[in-house]
C-alpha cells in the first residue's frame, strides 16, 4: 500500500497540511519497502485555479492507494479521484504524520470516499 500524507515537511514528525489541493508537500509512505518519499507541491500556492486537478494528477502518478489529509478533496479533485479507486481520509489536520498514520490504522479518521 502506498499512503500519501498532505504535509508541511518530510519526516514522521512533520505536521499534516490540512489542505489537499494546495498542500505544501506530499509525503508518500510505501508500506512494503517501509520508505518515505517527499513530493514538493508548493508551486500550487501561487496558482489561481485548478490546483485540485494538478494535485490529483500527482496522486495518480505517485501510485497512491490512500490519501490522508485534513479538510478533504475539493470539487474538482473529487471528480477525478472518485473514479480512480484512491481512498481519501480526512480529519488529520491537527496531527503529525506519525499520529495521522496511527489514527488511520486505528480507524479513527473519516473516509471521504
Amino acid at each position: 500500500m502506498k499512503i500519501v500524507f498532505t504535509t508541511k515537511g518530510k519526516t514522521w514528525e512533520s505536521p499534516i497540511d490540512a489542505r489537499f489541493g494546495r498542500a505544501e508537500m506530499f509525503l508518500i509512505y510505501d508500506e512494503e519497502s517501509d520508505t518515505l518519499e517527499a513530493i514538493d507541491n508548493s508551486a500550487t500556492e501561487s496558482m489561481e485555479h485548478g490546483v485540485g486537478g494538478v494535485s490529483s494528477k500527482r496522486m495518480i502518478n505517485a501510485g497512491a492507494n490512500v490519501v490522508i489529509t485534513g479538510n478533504g478533496a475539493g470539487e474538482k479533485a473529487l471528480k477525478i479521484l472518485k473514479t480512480t479507486g484512491i481512498a481519501f481520509f480526512t480529519g488529520a489536520g491537527e496531527m503529525s504524520v506519525k499520529e495521522a498514520y496511527e489514527a488511520y490504522k486505528a480507524n479513527k479518521l473519516q473516509k471521504q470516499f
Binding site: 485548478g50 486537478g53 490529483s56
Partner: peptide, 18 residues
C-alpha cells in the same frame, strides 16, 4: 495556462469552468 486540461494516464480531462 489555466489548468483546464488534465493529462491522466488513460484519458484527457477538460474542466470547462477553467
Amino acid at each position: 495556462n489555466f489548468n483546464a486540461i488534465l493529462h491522466l494516464p488513460e484519458e484527457i480531462r477538460v474542466f470547462p469552468e477553467l
